[in-house]
């Protein structure tokens, strides 16, 4: 098998003029990703991706994800059958994949469950009133002290820009998937309440979409060693505080993918 770097630099022999245009467009999207802050970006054939049914079960159910059931795009409300997800990605030839490093602290420490908004209302909604006044007070103060300094996430701006550009360029089926729960991100400032669960109508159509791991079965743990060697990240979570990973290489981050054509 050829190395990925070789695939990227050499054009398939059977390219038509249209394919030439496609390659030029892909290169343009790759540059957009880099310009907007991606650490590394590549044009990837769709076969690079490993999909696994475990990403839905281990990621959302075993054990339960904090966001499960919070929005219409998360399990158990939403399910894309595995075969459908495979067929969808299999019908694409190329995707733009980029590597993005989160700002330290954005997805780690006690706010990891709702890294984007970090709002206490989110926890209160999930955990009800069982926390008790003392814990409520403690975590409210913690949120006020720590979450303000957390920068907004911009990887979604990159994926959304590439998707929009691609559609404008005549790739009507370009799409990206979300990373995480939209009730946490889009509706976070509104109290993480998904009205789509009751009305089936989303507040932010066009901006929300199913999660990449939970709905499209992206298995990055298998994909990275196979297709993107060298792409490594620092693990994060509730029990790793931002100060534990300050200055650590590689930084915590994520893999983002936009399917083009």
């Amino acid at each position: 098998m050829r190395k990925l770097s070789e695939i990227e630099s050499s054009k398939p022999a059977a390219l038509t003029k249209e394919d030439d245009q496609l390659m030029a467009d892909l290169e343009k999207y790759r540059k957009i990703a880099l310009d907007m802050g991606a650490v590394e970006a590549r044009i990837m054939p769709s076969s690079f991706l490993v999909q696994g049914i475990r990403t839905r079960f281990a990621g959302c159910f075993f054990p339960r994800c904090l966001s499960q059931g919070l929005s219409m795009w998360c399990p158990p409300t939403w399910e894309t059958p595995f075969e459908v997800a495979q067929a969808v990605t299999g019908s694409y030839r190329y995707a733009i994949v980029f590597r993005y490093f989160d700002a330290v602290g954005i997805a780690t420490g006690p706010s990891a469950g709702s890294s984007r908004t970090g709002n206490l209302e989110y926890y209160s909604k999930v955990y009800g009133k069982d926390w008790g006044p003392e814990a409520e007070k403690y975590w409210r103060e913690y949120a006020e002290k720590n979450f303000e300094s957390r920068p907004d996430v911009s990887y979604r701006q990159i994926t959304a820009t590439i998707e929009a550009e691609a559609r404008k360029d005549g790739h009507p089926f370009a799409f990206y998937t979300a990373a995480g729960c939209c009730a946490d991100k889009e509706c976070g400032p509104l109290g993480s309440v998904c009205i789509g669960l009751k009305s089936s109508m989303c507040r932010f159509p066009g901006r929300t979409r199913p999660d990449g791991a939970g709905a499209m079965y992206y298995d990055w743990l298998r994909t990275l060693p196979k297709s993107l060697p060298g792409w490594k990240y620092t693990n994060v979570g509730w029990s790793i505080l931002p100060k534990d990973i300050e200055g650590r290489e590689p930084q915590p981050g994520r893999v983002c993918v936009v399917w083009i054509e």
Partner: peptide, 22 residues
């Protein structure tokens, strides 16, 4: 216990790099 422990009482794990080498 429903509420998470205070930060100072929280179990801590050393950060590692993923994917973990085979």
């Amino acid at each position: 216990r429903v509420a998470p422990p205070k930060v100072e009482d929280m179990p801590r794990f050393p950060p590692v790099t993923w994917p973990t080498p085979d």
